[in-house]
Design a protein around this nucleic acid. Structure first.
Lengths: 211, 211
DNA sequence: TCGTAAATCTAATGTACGTTCGAAACATGT
DNA sequence: ACATGTTTCGAACGTACATTAGATTTACGA
């Protein structure tokens, strides 16, 4: 009881880490407590000293995952100078979301991957938290649009969902070592702000801007 | 044996429909054969007259789902006049993908939602099919870039994955009746080609183009 | 060194599920 | 009406799993 990290805390953390990792990989229903326990270095029965049930364990994984990405994006905004451009505000939010997702965070990616297939009762418990995170983004986007940084004649809700989708889906294809997280964020922002299309030189008017 | 649709074929289809629907909703492992059978109007044991195992049933659902979206996008290209712009080619591909996904197709959305959490052996069986679909998109994008319709200094692979993510993620949030599928496709293409950003009037140079 | 509480183990329990198989019901051609 | 093939039923089997509870070990203060 002397160290700030009691043995119980350490075991708890190991269990959560293992659970997040496996939930993310195989989904909730397909992951067995035996596997989680083994990955955490103990027997299945021992899990019940730390968690009341498999569902409870799941809920904590989901909670941690959402909290982490929420805090990361929130902090990205607070770290920014007060007079930053709205493009920069969105840019760092994108970077924060993506980095949390792809850099060692099994919790957040587990949340994103499995949430839709989790027992309905568990989903209900987390709707508030999800809404709060959505609200954070909605706020950033609305401010940007009102101040003229985003086109005023687009449906911001749709744009936001498409953006979140593009980012979230990266957990399905991103593999460390190929494309950097920064490069993905850059491409995302480029698409969002400027698009990657070029005036089609159909009849060809002026060809100065293109290399 | 007289009708072109034998009783067996009808039952088979009912089972597949039920399976696709439930796989999509609850995931593979969490869906029981008892539920599928009930939704198809029969007993669990009867499923085995039509399918060798739960995995086999899953594989057929996945196969149908991928085939449908592949064919839809392929046909969208063939239907187009040969001299169509590359923007139009991409636009109809986006529309085809999205429409297949969101309009009654539990098969395709089941595939997209659960593929990452399906037994590894089953995944292996479908990699070829997935690659073929990716190749279809890669081809469309590469042609567009080579002919100057897409910026030449972006990583096309990343752009393509971000686009697919934005589209695929719609199965997580789209609900019929709110935003039309067409509107989503339009927003996606607008983002892809032009972006939704507006020149920030930070120090304000020329304000002619903005309303 | 001892005693107590914390942490884990081990074995058992009940249940839900995938699967099997012979019997029953159904359809169809003669 | 019969016979044969098709389709579904219903009950049973084995297994894998979440969960429980008492025994056992470990950590640690007195």
């Amino acid at each position: 009881m002397t160290s700030e990290q009691s043995k119980s805390d350490i075991s708890r953390a190991r269990i959560l880490d293992a659970a997040a990792k496996m939930f993310r990989q195989k989904g909730y229903a397909a992951t067995t407590l035996i596997e989680i326990a083994r990955a955490a270095g103990m027997q299945a029965g021992s899990l019940y000293y730390h968690f009341g049930s498999k569902d409870e364990l799941l809920e904590e994984v989901l909670d941690i995952g959402m909290r982490r990405v929420h805090e990361a994006v929130e902090e990205s905004q607070e770290r920014l100078p007060a007079d930053s451009s709205h493009r920069d505000r969105i840019r760092v939010a994108v970077e924060a979301h993506l980095t949390t997702l792809l850099k060692h965070d099994d919790y957040t990616s587990a949340n994103i991957r499995i949430f839709g297939q989790v027992p309905e009762e568990v989903q209900q418990h987390h709707i508030r938290q999800r809404d709060a995170y959505a609200e954070l983004w909605r706020h950033i986007f609305t401010k940007a649009q009102k101040s003229g940084a985003l086109s005023s004649d687009v449906n911001l809700g749709v744009v936001r969902m498409l953006l979140m989708g593009a980012l979230n889906w990266s957990v399905e294809w991103y593999r460390p070592g190929r494309t950097s997280i920064q490069a993905i964020a850059d491409h995302m922002c480029l698409m969002l702000f400027n698009g990657v299309g070029i005036e089609e030189p159909a009849q060809s008017r002026e060809n100065e801007t293109v290399t």
